[in-house]
Nucleic acid binder design. Structure first.
Lengths: 194, 194
DNA sequence: TCCGGGATACCCGTTGCCCGGTATTTTTAA
DNA sequence: TTAAAAATACCGGGCAACGGGTATCCCGGA
């Protein structure tokens, strides 16, 4: 971790606000300092880094996250990027590429290390190739949710069991990776469903 | 009251489902028959009509309420309209204007008797003229709600008791007259707060 | 000077969302 | 045709949201 910090210290336009050695500490710093960018080492607690990334993505949508990892497989990259990471680099990244990644990310882009981007891009292509994500039925229900219909009201309107609507609702939440109806509305707006 | 009913009976597209002589009886009818429209005489029990209107507005948002009154002052009109009434007429209203009011209200509009609307509109103007509606604190909290913060998280972020946040949330819901966070988001979007 | 609104805080009860499952039928895709 | 996905339905539990109260403090306008 010190290695990374020293890499950054050499560059005047970057300022290291804090370094955290565990996830709770990191969360604390993030909430108090609210930095523009968080560099997360997912080798430290395995799942901790994933949770941290999800937390940042949902609570601070404008805050950027770059993941430092030692895993170069598509699964790990995909999981972190899905969780809301803006960049993914291996721990052996060179200073120049790290700086480049930071700049790209801060400008609103995504950055995956050169040596990984080829295989990841290929996987991504098959992965994100306009998969509808939500089924027609689910979209229908999402629209009704956005219109302030309760689960019970939706079930009455569509002649379904409330249980069915509940299941659909759960599946929608799972698929869109949001934590409540609020995220659902935001998702619907940004994806053009609503 | 019979005078009103007979006015309505002359018109084929209106059907009088029931007449109530006191508030509890009216509540009973409303809940069992769920009419499209309720015409309330606020001279009968003073506060009773106000409570009834509030009850309908909160429990049956789509049900319309027209208030028949003998008070022509701005206070009374404002109170009833704020409580959720869709129309306000004096008891001496002519049949033609009553019908017109009903049609306007059923089409989703608001109707205040011609002879009153001028003074009321003037009061309303000062009243609704960029009244911030939500206080700065409430707007702050609304924004955090939209970012998927829970009440507890908001309280921690603003160094407040969760109870306080709860109160603000309730006041926001009351002021914006929506029924859940979903309506809150929609309100925020349309009003430009979010 | 007094009143009202805003901000703060607390309590209690009900409702509905959310999460964790399981399971059947139908439809679609491989 | 066979496997996966979608749509349907049900159960039980936890907890946040919501509604309706009460109460104090402070400040700015009437």
């Amino acid at each position: 971790m010190d290695g990374i910090a020293s890499l950054l210290l050499d560059v005047p336009q970057f300022k290291v606000l804090a370094k955290a050695s565990d996830v709770p500490q990191a969360m604390d710093y993030i909430q108090t300092l609210q930095p523009d960018l968080v560099i997360t080492d997912i080798s430290m607690g395995e799942t901790g880094g994933l949770e941290l990334t999800r937390f940042i993505a949902s609570h601070y949508p404008l805050m950027k996250v770059i993941v430092l990892s030692m895993h170069d497989d598509v699964q790990h990259i995909g999981t972190m990027m899905d969780a809301g990471a803006n960049g993914y680099l291996l721990k052996n990244v060179r200073q120049q590429e790290l700086q480049h990644a930071i700049i790209s990310v801060m400008e609103g882009g995504q950055y995956v290390q050169q040596s990984l981007s080829t295989k990841f891009a290929k996987a991504m292509q098959q992965d994100t190739q306009e998969k509808p994500l939500l089924s027609p039925r689910e979209i229908e229900i999402l629209r009704l949710i956005a219109l302030e219909y309760s689960t019970l009201e939706i079930s009455e309107r569509l002649f379904l069991s409330p249980h069915t609507v509940e299941t659909h609702r759960k599946n929608i939440l799972r698929k869109t990776k949001v934590k409540s109806v609020i995220g659902l509305i935001n998702y619907g707006r940004s994806s053009g469903i609503l």
